[in-house]
């Protein structure tokens, strides 16, 4: 029973991890918490659904197109929302991000209504491995997430873009002095973040249904994971997400399942009280 919960929790955590890593990437480059991540998850899932169901493309292809589509949307958002506000402080930017989230979420509601949608995938029976029930979607989720994280790690560690991103995150002024164009790095960060969030949207859509509120339901766990990991640390965000996922599943042993979402909030509160830099964070988030 507990092993099953831990397994489910790890899979939930992986989905959360994609969003949390995206959040942490944009935070470290743009220095504000991107509250649009909820709307981004929803829009990503709907783009994939649009390609998958009405247009009939297989889901992997739909996921790729969702990543591209969401990246295009976020590039436009960067150009028309975030860039004009860049020098106005984190508070203004995060309120604008919340406004953007409202827009993205309600464009989905306007276009597709409140009806829950599902991807066109054949439901398969779960496998049984030594007493554990493992759903094929869970395996897909694990494979996709691990592959995405490995890919991101390679980009961050071993490419020109990755070095530029880490340099801007580390010391924006020095990065400028070294000739690193922050606007360009920012745009590429949005593309990476959008791709990760679109993937998480698709995975969430596979797990439950696609509806306009799906992203909203994930915003607290995603933030909790990123804060738990220490905002700005991708590795920490993954660890934080897995912990939140497992804690959410295990929480049903002590509290009513309806309150599972409270776990994320409690985690945030505990981190803020006990270890403000998060688990792997390098910088204090105190001011």
């Amino acid at each position: 029973m507990i092993a099953q919960l831990v397994l489910n929790g790890l899979v939930t955590g992986m989905v959360v991890a994609l969003g949390a890593v995206a959040l942490t990437l944009t935070y470290s480059i743009l220095k504000f918490p991107n509250f649009a991540v909820g709307g981004m998850i929803t829009l990503g899932a709907y783009i994939a659904w649009l390609v998958n169901v009405p247009l009939g493309l297989p889901l992997p292809g739909a996921a790729v197109l969702a990543a591209i589509g969401l990246a295009a949307v976020m590039l436009a958002a960067d150009r028309f929302v975030f860039r004009p506000l860049r020098d106005r402080g984190a508070i203004t930017l995060l309120v604008a991000a919340m406004g953007l989230s409202l827009i993205l979420e309600n464009i989905c509601r306007l276009a597709f209504g409140n009806v829950a949608r599902n991807f066109d995938v054949d439901p398969e029976r779960p496998w049984r491995v030594s007493g554990l029930r493992i759903h094929p979607e869970q395996v897909t989720t694990a494979v996709v997430t691990v592959a995405a994280m490995a890919g991101l790690w390679l980009v961050l560690r071993h490419t020109r873009l990755g070095r530029a991103m880490r340099a801007v995150a580390d010391n924006p002024d020095l990065a400028a002095v070294r000739g690193i164009d922050r606007d360009r790095v920012t745009r590429r960060t949005w593309v990476l973040a959008a791709a990760l969030v679109a993937l998480s949207g698709v995975l969430i859509g596979m797990d439950r249904a696609i509806d306009p509120l799906m992203g909203w339901a994930y915003i607290i766990p995603v933030f909790a994971a990123a804060i738990l990991g220490g905002l700005g640390s991708p590795g920490g965000a993954v660890l934080g997400a897995l912990l939140i996922g497992v804690a959410q599943e295990l929480s049903v042993l002590v509290i009513e399942p309806n309150y599972r979402q409270v776990v994320g909030f409690v985690a945030i509160a505990l981190v803020l009280l006990a270890r403000p830099r998060g688990l792997l964070g390098v910088e204090e988030i105190r001011r």
């Binding site: 504000f32 508070i91 988030i285 105190r286 001011r287």
Partner: peptide
């Protein structure tokens, strides 16, 4: 004790 951004999420 934290930067203002955190109040928003809390």
């Amino acid at each position: 004790r934290l930067a203002e951004e955190y109040l928003a999420i809390v």
